[in-house]
Simulated scan of single mutants.
Amino acid sequence: MWWIYALLSAFFASLTAIFAKIGVKDVNSDLATAIRTIVILFVAWGIALARGEVKGMAELSKNTWIFLGLSGLATGLSWIFYYKALQMGKVSQVAPVDKLSVALTIILSVIFLKETVSLKAALGAGLIICGTLVLIF
């Protein structure tokens, strides 16, 4: 079942790139990111409230707050740089290079989370890195 959500994520991420490229045409990329963030804020909180999932906030540990905060900071920085790249480059180049994050995540999961990576996953990460280099150079 996880793969259905992952495919939906990929589909909506591709729409994000297309809509964002059109949206940043006549606006500063930082302002575009701020607008996008407001929309996401309402959608995410709307879902959490509608499903009654905000009750658990009081029970979150300090560690959870710190790492969710860091994740939010990293997300925000990623979006700022992504929108700037979209504003300056072709979506057909920017979006695939942005997906280098997949290979970087595999590498960082080994370093920081001590996850083991299969040969297939390592090969896939290597191919993503090679493909990214082809797109850049």
Score class of each variant (00 low, 15 high):
residue 94 V to Q: 00
residue 107 I to K: 09
residue 81 F to H: 09
residue 100 L to N: 01
residue 131 G to H: 00
residue 52 G to I: 09
residue 112 F to K: 09
residue 105 T to P: 04
residue 24 V to K: 07
residue 9 S to G: 10
residue 73 L to R: 01
residue 115 E to H: 08
residue 58 A to P: 01
residue 127 L to K: 04
residue 33 T to S: 14
residue 80 I to T: 04
residue 114 K to G: 02
residue 107 I to L: 15
residue 75 T to E: 11
residue 28 N to K: 11
residue 132 T to W: 02
residue 72 G to K: 09
residue 8 L to D: 03
residue 67 F to D: 08
residue 49 L to G: 06
residue 130 C to Y: 12
residue 30 D to H: 11
residue 114 K to A: 10
residue 3 W to D: 04
residue 131 G to V: 10
residue 119 L to R: 12
residue 17 A to C: 10
residue 53 E to A: 12
residue 136 I to F: 01
residue 127 L to P: 00
residue 103 A to F: 05
residue 103 A to T: 05
residue 133 L to W: 02
residue 44 A to P: 03
residue 27 V to W: 02
residue 35 I to L: 13
residue 48 A to P: 00
residue 33 T to A: 15
residue 77 L to M: 13
residue 64 T to I: 12
residue 126 G to H: 04
residue 108 L to F: 11
residue 45 W to Y: 12
residue 109 S to K: 07
residue 114 K to D: 07
residue 45 W to N: 12
residue 56 G to H: 11
residue 133 L to C: 05
residue 120 K to R: 11
residue 121 A to M: 13
residue 1 M to G: 12
residue 69 G to E: 06
residue 125 A to R: 07
residue 46 G to C: 06
residue 120 K to Y: 05
residue 31 L to Y: 07
residue 40 I to G: 13
residue 110 V to P: 00
residue 29 S to F: 07
residue 21 K to D: 02
residue 111 I to E: 03
residue 57 M to S: 02
residue 65 W to I: 13
residue 61 S to Q: 05
residue 98 D to K: 09
residue 129 I to R: 08
residue 17 A to R: 03
residue 18 I to M: 13
residue 104 L to I: 15
residue 36 R to L: 12
residue 16 T to Y: 11
residue 71 S to R: 09
residue 23 G to L: 08
residue 75 T to M: 15
residue 19 F to D: 02
residue 48 A to E: 08
residue 90 K to F: 06
residue 34 A to R: 06
residue 43 V to I: 15
residue 136 I to D: 00
residue 21 K to I: 08
residue 102 V to E: 03
residue 51 R to N: 08
residue 76 G to K: 09
residue 80 I to H: 03
residue 26 D to N: 14
residue 113 L to M: 13
residue 76 G to C: 09
residue 122 A to C: 10
residue 105 T to A: 15
residue 107 I to V: 15
residue 67 F to Q: 08
residue 57 M to D: 01
residue 128 I to R: 01
residue 92 S to I: 06
residue 80 I to M: 10
residue 56 G to A: 12
residue 21 K to L: 07
residue 64 T to E: 04
residue 16 T to S: 12
residue 20 A to E: 05
residue 67 F to R: 12
residue 63 N to Y: 09
residue 93 Q to G: 02
residue 16 T to E: 14
residue 51 R to A: 14
residue 34 A to L: 07
residue 10 A to H: 02
residue 32 A to D: 05
residue 3 W to M: 15
residue 65 W to P: 04
residue 96 P to D: 03
residue 61 S to Y: 04
residue 49 L to C: 07
residue 70 L to G: 10
residue 2 W to A: 15
residue 20 A to W: 03
residue 105 T to N: 08
residue 135 L to Q: 07
residue 109 S to E: 04
residue 68 L to S: 11
